[in-house]
């Protein structure tokens, strides 16, 4: 245990790196999920096509391959990114492709009558989305986003392959330097578990806040 204390700064630094990757990756993923999910519902064919190509490419290839492309291949095309930036982009773009399907599905799940009511109240398409569809679709997305947040956290360990010392990699460092195996891996097991519990609690909190004051859950009969 003493040895572990001695090496704890390495683990703390690794934890911090993993948290940054998770937060940054989630921000990119959410942005891409909303842009892509909504664009795929656009009336314009070329917009839908662009969004669908992104979705299929990033969903159809592994995050690791995407990471290598962003970090190793892009420089040949004149775009050189810091390792952290490359890591956040790869994780975010990869998870964003899955997220876009969640956004699209949730938007489509809102009753058609809601759009018709908006037309009858003379809302623009933007106002309909902003004030009526998204406020009802986002609570539908939340639980799935929670799960995807945990997936994203677990995915962050791929970045050790582009020289970043995240939590998983720091356990390897401790193991090599200390000769201990069980302790560092037990430590990161617990840390990952705490981090994912934080995500679960955060999403639960959001769900509660959104449900507050809405009366009975939507979707039960006509409203």
């Amino acid at each position: 245990m003493d040895i572990l204390v001695e090496f704890s700064p390495v683990l703390v630094k690794g934890t911090w790196t993993t948290i940054i990757l998770t937060l940054g990756g989630s921000a990119v993923a959410l942005t891409m999920a909303f842009i892509t999910g909504l664009t795929r519902l656009s009336r314009r064919l070329y917009l839908r096509a662009v969004a669908t190509i992104y979705l299929e490419i990033f969903r159809g290839t592994s995050a690791l391959v995407q990471l290598f492309w962003i970090f190793f291949v892009l420089p040949f095309l004149g775009v050189t990114l810091e390792p952290m930036t490359a890591g956040i982009m790869a994780i975010g773009l990869n998870m964003g492709s899955y997220g876009s399907e969640v956004v699209r599905g949730a938007v489509l799940s809102v009753d058609r009558g809601q759009r018709e009511a908006c037309a009858a109240l003379n809302y623009t398409r933007f106002q309909t989305m902003r004030y009526v569809i998204l406020p009802q679709a986002i609570p539908v997305m939340l639980p799935t986003f929670g799960n995807q947040g945990i997936e994203l956290l677990k995915l962050t360990s791929v970045v050790s392959l582009i020289t970043i010392s995240d939590l998983t990699f720091s356990a390897q460092l401790v193991r090599t330097a200390s000769g201990l195996t069980l302790e560092p891996f037990m430590a990161i097991l617990i840390i990952y578990f705490i981090l994912s519990s934080c995500i679960v609690q955060f999403v639960k909190l959001l769900e509660k806040r959104m449900a507050k004051g809405r009366g009975l859950p939507a979707g039960k009969g006509a409203v």
Partner: peptide, 13 residues
């Protein structure tokens, strides 16, 4: 023009 629907279509949120 305003319209009242058979199934109300109120905003549940």
């Amino acid at each position: 023009i305003g319209m009242v629907f058979q199934h109300f279509n109120l905003f549940p949120h």
